[in-house]
């Protein structure tokens, strides 16, 4: 793949990740438990991870977190999304390295760890451990959304050919 093509592709993936984040922020929360969300942006990150590589996916994820915070967020929301993104990305890489899991397994691990990262950051920022109470619900939602995002990503990774 030529350098120019790669730059264009990466920009498109980063743009998609941002757009998906934005779309998701417009959807009203379904439950009263904070932190439950679909994780649509992970589709773009998963796609980049499998199609373009680890470093590229890391760049897409980092660009999304920084730009979304600058455009729509605050310092606090930046810290939450950073904690979730860093932990989930690290675990997704590990799970993928093990070579036992398909895209769905990687995405489930990512979804669950995103929620764990955010809860951990909330515990640090609020200096309280009472929010651990939310963890079982977040594990549950992370697993379910992880499956949905994983199946979607797997389809896209399989169907979209990049030369």
């Amino acid at each position: 793949m030529s350098k120019n093509k790669k730059i264009a592709l990466l920009s498109m993936c980063a743009c998609l990740a941002m757009l998906l984040s934005f779309v998701e922020s417009r959807i009203p929360p379904l439950t009263a438990i904070p932190g439950i969300k679909m994780g649509l942006a992970n589709i773009a990150v998963m796609f980049t991870l499998y199609k373009l590589g680890t470093r590229e996916a890391m760049a897409v994820s980092a660009i999304r977190v920084v730009l979304i915070a600058l455009l729509f967020g605050s310092a606090v929301s930046f810290l939450y999304s950073l904690a979730g993104a860093v932990l989930s990305f690290a675990v997704m890489l590990l799970v993928r390295r093990v070579k036992l899991f398909s895209e769905v397994g990687v995405s489930v691990a990512g979804g669950v760890c995103h929620n764990i990262g955010q809860i951990a950051m909330a515990c640090i920022l609020l200096e309280t451990n009472v929010i651990v109470y939310y963890l079982p619900f977040l594990l549950l939602s992370g697993t379910v959304t992880g499956v949905l995002i994983g199946v979607t990503s797997a389809l896209l990774i399989k169907r979209i050919k990049i030369k």
Binding site: L100, F101, S102, G105, V112, T143, V147
Partner: peptide, 12 residues
């Protein structure tokens, strides 16, 4: 791989 996926999901 699918089997391990399902195992992971079931455990979680």
């Amino acid at each position: 791989k699918l089997r391990y996926d399902i195992l992971l999901i079931a455990v979680l």
